[in-house]
Each structure stands twice: as structure tokens, then as C-alpha cells.
């Protein structure tokens, strides 16, 4: 393939592959906890991190990771304190993050234009150092997301039962949010912060119709995520469109394509499973 002869394209495809694997891995737990829009909120907070990096002329990715993780911890604290205050608190936090990011980017004189590569993704401008950071952070997310999957499953499925099992439920809840914050920020160069939540949620939704079981669903979602991310990156190279938008639309197309398959499988299971 001639597109692999370009160094920038090799980096783009590698990062697309890594984020495609990582985002649905943590997205599985986020969806199970019914926090499908959490990724969106964390993306908004990460924008403040990008703005801060532009303002202080530091590296956007590490700065945004730190800001998003701090935001994620705050979100979880609000959630644990109770829903009523949490709902409004979350909204303020999310829009505050977006506004602060745009404001800080504006102060630097770069304006919102400088933010756009983070808002919509820009795979082709990755440096080798970016790739290293993405690879390390992918490992940081995937090792606990896969290694602690029984524990995280138990907490996301039934928090009270997990507590009576003696699991460190609070810590595991924070872990999910922190890993989601890392995944969101790492994905900002691939799909962009505005669309990152789609890569966390849509492959999970697509896999749940066609595979049986939680762990199989987790692995299938990672496979679908990797496929659509790499497919979208390749497609964006040839079609010369924004990779983020194409990746998300391919993911949604896969989700829609699984419907008839899911319906057939469902009917077969119901008739063969019985009671």
C-alpha cells in the first residue's frame, strides 16, 4: 500500500489503531454504568486543557490529560454525592471547560482556529513524540481495562453487591472515570474532542447486539473500534476529509449494519435457549 510509504501516514494509522482499541475498551464500562455521555463531558473539559497548553506554550496532550483527569475526578465526586446536585454540577463543569478552553486559546491570539485540530482530530500532523505518548497512555488504559475486567464488571453491573463482596468500589469507580478521561484525551487527535464519545459508545452498542456475554462484547467492541478507526483514517487520506467525522460515520454505519444480524441472532437464541 502506497500510503504506508509516508511516515506521517504510518504514524496516523498506528495512532488510529491504538485509539480504536482503547476507546471502546473503557467505553464498555462507561456504557454499562449508563454514563454514555460522560465521554462528551470529559472532552469538553479536555478543551480547557488544550487552551491551557496553548496559553502556557506547553505540550497539549499531557496538559489536556492532566486537566481531563482532574475534571473526571470532580465529576465522580459530584456523582457520588448524589444525583440532584450532580446533574447541574456536571453541566457547569462541562460548559465551563469548553468556555475556558476557547477563551484561553483566544488570549494567545491563535483563536478558535488553533483549537480545531483538537476539536475535530488531525491525524496527519502527529509527531513521533506524540505517537510515543499515545502508545504509553494506551497501555495505561488497556492494562487495567482488561486485567481488572471482572472487578470493573462487578462494580458497573451491581455496585451494592460489589461492596458486599468487599471490593474497593470507590477506587474502582474513580478508576473508570480516570481511564475514560485519559482515553478521551488521547483520542482527541484521532477523532477530535467533539466526537470522541462516539468512538467510546458506538462500537460498544454495535457489539452488544451480535455477541454473547460481557467479556466477548468488550473484545468485539475493541475489534470494531480498531476496524473503523483504521478504516476511517485510510478513507480520510484518499477522500481528503476530516478523519474524525469519517471514523464516527463508519462506526455508526457498522452499528446500523448489525441491526438485522442482531435481530436474526436474537430470534435464534430465544427459540433455542428456551426456559
Amino acid at each position: 500500500m502506497d500510503l504506508l510509504s509516508y511516515d506521517f501516514m504510518q504514524r496516523a494509522l498506528l495512532v488510529a489503531l491504538l485509539t480504536g482499541l482503547m476507546a471502546p475498551a473503557i467505553g464498555t464500562y462507561v456504557v454499562q454504568r449508563r454514563l454514555a455521555l460522560l465521554g462528551d463531558g470529559l472532552g469538553h473539559i479536555a478543551i480547557a486543557g488544550v487552551g491551557l497548553a496553548l496559553l502556557t506554550q506547553s505540550q497539549p496532550l499531557p496538559t489536556a490529560v492532566v486537566v481531563a483527569v482532574l475534571g473526571g475526578v470532580l465529576v465522580e465526586l459530584l456523582r457520588q454525592r448524589g444525583r440532584a446536585s450532580g446533574d447541574v454540577g456536571l453541566a457547569i463543569l462541562f460548559y465551563g471547560g469548553l468556555a475556558a478552553g476557547v477563551l484561553m486559546a483566544g488570549i494567545t491570539g491563535a483563536g478558535a482556529g488553533a483549537l480545531s485540530q483538537y476539536l475535530f482530530g488531525s491525524l496527519t500532523s502527529l509527531t513521533p513524540a506524540d505517537v510515543v505518548v499515545v502508545a504509553v497512555l494506551t497501555a495505561v488504559v488497556l492494562v487495567p481495562a482488561l486485567g481488572l475486567s471482572p472487578q470493573l464488571f462487578a462494580v458497573c453491573a451491581d455496585e451494592d453487591h460489589a461492596r458486599v463482596l468487599g471490593l474497593p468500589v470507590r477506587t474502582l469507580n474513580f478508576l473508570v472515570v480516570v481511564l475514560a478521561a485519559v482515553a478521551v484525551t488521547v483520542s482527541m487527535r484521532t477523532v477530535g474532542l467533539l466526537l470522541v464519545s462516539a468512538l467510546m459508545v458506538v462500537p460498544v452498542a454495535a457489539s452488544q447486539g451480535v455477541v454473547r456475554g460481557f467479556r466477548a462484547g468488550l473484545l468485539a467492541a475493541m475489534g470494531i473500534g480498531a476496524l473503523v478507526a483504521v478504516g476511517g483514517a485510510v478513507g480520510s487520506f484518499y477522500a481528503d476529509v476530516a478523519p474524525g467525522a469519517l471514523i464516527v460515520l463508519i462506526a455508526i454505519a457498522v452499528f446500523v449494519a448489525t441491526w438485522p444480524l442482531a435481530a436474526v441472532l436474537e430470534r435464534r437464541r430465544r427459540t433455542s435457549g428456551g426456559a
Binding site: F153, A157, D158, A162, L165, R212, G213, F214
Partner: peptide, 19 residues
């Protein structure tokens, strides 16, 4: 109080061993 979507019986029962 459960939020199980497509978890299997085996996965749910196995989680009882996590302690």
C-alpha cells in the same frame, strides 16, 4: 438494582467469587 445488559449467567455467577 442490576444493570446487566448482555452479561451471561456464567459471568454473573463468577463475579460472586471476586472476594
Amino acid at each position: 438494582s442490576l444493570t446487566l445488559r448482555n452479561a451471561t449467567v456464567g459471568e454473573v455467577v463468577a463475579s460472586g467469587r471476586l472476594g
